[in-house]
Design a binder for these strands. Sequence first.
DNA 1: ACAGTCATGTTTACAATGCACACATATAAG
DNA 2: CTTATATGTGTGCATTGTAAACATGACTGT
Lengths: 199, 199
Amino acid sequence: MSTSKSPSYHHGDLRSALVGAAVELLGEGDVEKLSLRAVARRAGVSSMAPYRHYPDKEALLAAVAQTGFDGLRTALANADSTSPPDRALLAQGTAYVRYALENQILFRLMFGPPRRGDHCDLRASSQTAFGVLMQRVEHETEPEAAQTRVLGYWSLVHGLAMLILDGQTAVAGLQAPNLATIERIIAGMLDLRSEIRSP
Amino acid sequence: MSTSKSPSYHHGDLRSALVGAAVELLGEGDVEKLSLRAVARRAGVSSMAPYRHYPDKEALLAAVAQTGFDGLRTALANADSTSPPDRALLAQGTAYVRYALENQILFRLMFGPPRRGDHCDLRASSQTAFGVLMQRVEHETEPEAAQTRVLGYWSLVHGLAMLILDGQTAVAGLQAPNLATIERIIAGMLDLRSEIRSP
DNA sequence: ACAGTCATGTTTACAATGCACACATATAAG
DNA sequence: CTTATATGTGTGCATTGTAAACATGACTGT
């Protein structure tokens, strides 16, 4: 191993360098345009080098998506721990949407069409991220309804993120939904019962 | 024009035949695999024929997505009109998710990465579909909060549909979310459980 | 009827892509 | 030092999106 500066044939840590290059490229163009060859070029290796570390393109994208889920998890955990308990759930929700907006293409990749093959560590990462939300919801609900409730809340923030990413909020009459608006939408759904049923 | 059986050079109504062929192919494979050439083949014309009707592949996909939004609109309107008023909102929600599950790839295309170019009739179709939901929500809410509320509800059902499509519900511990489970999740967020359980 | 115009479909061509295969080279093991 | 193994390179092929030039057939005015 020694110093990772052998400049010639061997790269030293191509495996993670490829993921880094892919993330870089995702920050520049859309997800369709991301070609394996471009990733290899960016990493400074030949077009076929990635195949020594990932069986195919899907596997590389799965690895990229996994880093996305890890980032999402820390974002959620951070939002949760820096908020008073009675606002932690809302904080996680806005953090979720904010993460999606700040990593648009990556986020779309994470929740894109299902990756072929198992990619079980991807699944583990997404499960861990989901666990952060799960734990908070379980604090606030009787355990019997927790599973239903957490899926509902996850659906709410996930759908909101997706609709904003797709520009569908313009359809609803909102052009640029800022953070305050996002928070209002989420909070509105959480308060729905009292407001909607007792007019 | 006459009968659409001129078998030789001219097709008669390639424009819509292409959309039909594309929808057919979407029902068979994933969205990445859908190539313009395959669509042309399925329609029985040469690879370049589609370019006489659509400037590029994106435009064809936009037309396909538009039919998807039209179908969604009728599904929502139908669910709304065949339910008692106090359950119409919930009915629209489950109809939304059901449409997504029954047209997985098409649904993903509709809400996929934003189409380049304007495609303003696509936008019109999605707006019309959204309008069906909007109108129902406006019946049940004071108009001041309607816009926030309808976006929240749309986010809920859209996110739920997306998560199920991506298989993320397995992460949450649910393998096969059937319609009853879906309804329970939505109703749980609306806190309509009392109505469901105790008539 | 007939020549001309134009929308529509075909053929050919080209660059980019994912990947299979054979080869090269650097590091580790004996 | 030899050799085995991991890692990177080069070449080649089928498929893709699309530009350019050509073909065909329906509609026009005369």
